[in-house]
Amino acid sequence: MSAPAVTDAERAAAGRWLVKHGVEVPTLTDLLVLRLGFRGGARPPGWWRWIVPAILVMCAANVGYLCLAFLPGVRGEELTGGGYLFFLMIFLQLSNWLPVRVRDRQARALPGTRAIERRPGFAMGGWDIAALLVTFGGGTALAVTILVTTPFRTYAWSWLGLLALGGVVTAMILTGILRRPVIAEDETSLAVDAAVRLQDLLIAMPAVYAVPVLFDPMTDNAQPPGYTPWLMGYAALAVATQVVAGFVNWRRSRLILAAVA
């Protein structure tokens, strides 16, 4: 099996990533280039081929969501107006996650015995779990409360459905990050593996799915009367928790890389 081709842009981006994080390596190996090229801002060969189909799928999903208004018993004016924002967030998450996943698999499959695989430690911290619980647990609790205590049933189940879809995508990405074997060939690449695992959690940041709920209070007021402060507080708490989680993970990754700098 031949080694996957790496581009000059990926090699330069990987070098910049290492310099930015204060890591010096005598030789920039293909393993590091495959793992850090995209994360450093370069685009792997052929990455654009799925963009157009993905955009078409995103547009079709939004049209399908809007068509729910024509179903019997559905009050179209109560469909949460942030539906397209959910689909946009999914598109952005996957557009960052899929190239990372492909290049990591290629790094893992390098010929010979260059890659050492072992199970990683648990990468998620308490703030990451808190962001998940606030976003999906808090959102579900609010939607169910609206469903059982108000006549705005369409608003509630449409929000629940979109939240569940975002939860599935987030769970898929988190599972890939947490279950990914350690891929390393020396102490430097071992530290890089631990650092990028923490930084990859930013791709799956769940709080992005709390933001679209602000669309209704800010535009057409499809939300039930009296729930606007609750919805805004929910979104603010989710985002704040996510910001803290991102900062903590950034600090953890810097400390890991400082040990081999």
Results as ranks from 00 to 15, higher is better:
residue 11 R to T: 15
residue 15 G to I: 04
residue 149 T to C: 13
residue 78 E to M: 11
residue 16 R to Q: 12
residue 39 R to W: 13
residue 175 T to H: 07
residue 174 L to G: 04
residue 171 A to D: 03
residue 136 F to N: 02
residue 86 F to C: 05
residue 20 K to R: 15
residue 112 G to C: 07
residue 73 G to P: 08
residue 48 W to I: 04
residue 222 A to Y: 12
residue 196 V to S: 06
residue 140 T to H: 03
residue 170 T to M: 01
residue 141 A to M: 12
residue 25 V to K: 06
residue 203 I to A: 09
residue 84 Y to T: 06
residue 1 M to G: 11
residue 257 L to I: 08
residue 35 R to E: 14
residue 56 L to D: 10
residue 208 V to G: 03
residue 176 G to S: 06
residue 261 A to M: 13
residue 230 W to T: 01
residue 114 R to M: 06
residue 135 T to Y: 11
residue 222 A to I: 08
residue 183 I to R: 02
residue 92 L to K: 00
residue 23 V to T: 08
residue 221 N to F: 14
residue 74 V to R: 02
residue 194 A to V: 15
residue 230 W to V: 02
residue 215 F to H: 08
residue 100 V to G: 02
residue 32 L to S: 00
residue 70 F to S: 07
residue 101 R to G: 00
residue 108 R to Y: 01
residue 2 S to N: 14
residue 91 F to W: 15
residue 247 F to W: 14
residue 59 C to P: 01
residue 253 S to D: 06
residue 209 Y to H: 11
residue 139 G to T: 05
residue 230 W to M: 11
residue 239 V to S: 04
residue 218 M to Q: 08
residue 79 L to T: 00
residue 31 L to S: 00
residue 198 L to D: 13
residue 164 A to Y: 05
residue 97 W to E: 00
residue 163 L to H: 04
residue 172 M to L: 08
residue 212 P to N: 14
residue 234 Y to T: 03
residue 65 Y to A: 07
residue 243 V to P: 04
residue 213 V to T: 00
residue 173 I to W: 07
residue 190 L to N: 10
residue 22 G to I: 13
residue 29 T to C: 14
residue 99 P to T: 13
residue 65 Y to F: 12
residue 17 W to L: 04
residue 161 G to C: 06
residue 98 L to D: 03
residue 258 A to W: 09
residue 249 N to A: 05
residue 164 A to R: 03
residue 158 S to K: 03
residue 225 P to W: 13
residue 67 C to I: 12
residue 156 A to G: 00
residue 126 G to C: 07
residue 252 R to K: 15
residue 219 T to C: 10
residue 78 E to P: 03
